[in-house]
C-alpha cells in the first residue's frame, strides 16, 4: 500500500504503518491522523515525539504498558495513565501513536 502527499509517494504496510522509518516527517503524521479523523494537538505531539525518541534509543516501539509508564515518568503522572492516552489515541495509544510517529507496530502488542 501507499499514499501520496505533497508530490511524494509513501509506502506503507497493509495496516498503514510507514514502510521506511526515514520517510517520516511532521506532514506524514498530520496526514495519517486526518485519515483517522483526528486533529493533532500539542498533547498528541508530546506522545508522538516521545515515541520517536524511544525508538531512536532502543530500536523498538514500546508496548502500551511500557509506554504508559514511561510517559508518566517523563511527562507527569496525570499523563501516564491509559485513560489519558486512550482519549488522545482512541484506537490504542501504542498502535495509533506509533503509526503517526512512523514506527513499526509495537513489539509486545497482543
Amino acid at each position: 500500500m501507499a499514499f501520496e502527499l505533497n508530490g511524494k509517494t509513501y509506502e506503507t504496510d497493509e495496516e498503514g504503518y510507514l514502510a521506511d522509518l526515514s520517510d517520516w516527517n511532521n506532514d506524514v503524521a498530520g496526514y495519517m491522523a486526518k485519515e483517522d479523523d483526528c486533529d493533532l494537538s500539542e498533547y498528541h505531539w508530546e506522545v508522538i515525539n516521545f515515541l520517536r525518541e524511544y525508538y531512536d534509543e532502543y530500536q523498538i516501539a514500546p508496548a502500551v504498558r511500557v509506554l504508559t509508564k514511561a510517559i508518566g515518568k517523563k511527562l507527569g503522572k496525570d499523563k501516564g495513565n491509559s485513560k489519558y492516552l486512550y482519549e488522545l489515541f482512541p484506537y490504542g495509544p501504542a498502535k495509533q501513536a506509533c503509526k503517526y510517529a512512523g514506527l513499526p507496530k509495537p513489539t509486545g502488542c497482543v
Partner: peptide
C-alpha cells in the same frame, strides 16, 4: 543488518 542490540536496554522497562 538491523542492529537490535539497543533493544536489550529496554528489557528493564518490560
Amino acid at each position: 543488518m538491523k542492529n537490535f542490540s539497543p533493544a536489550y536496554r529496554a528489557l528493564g522497562d518490560y
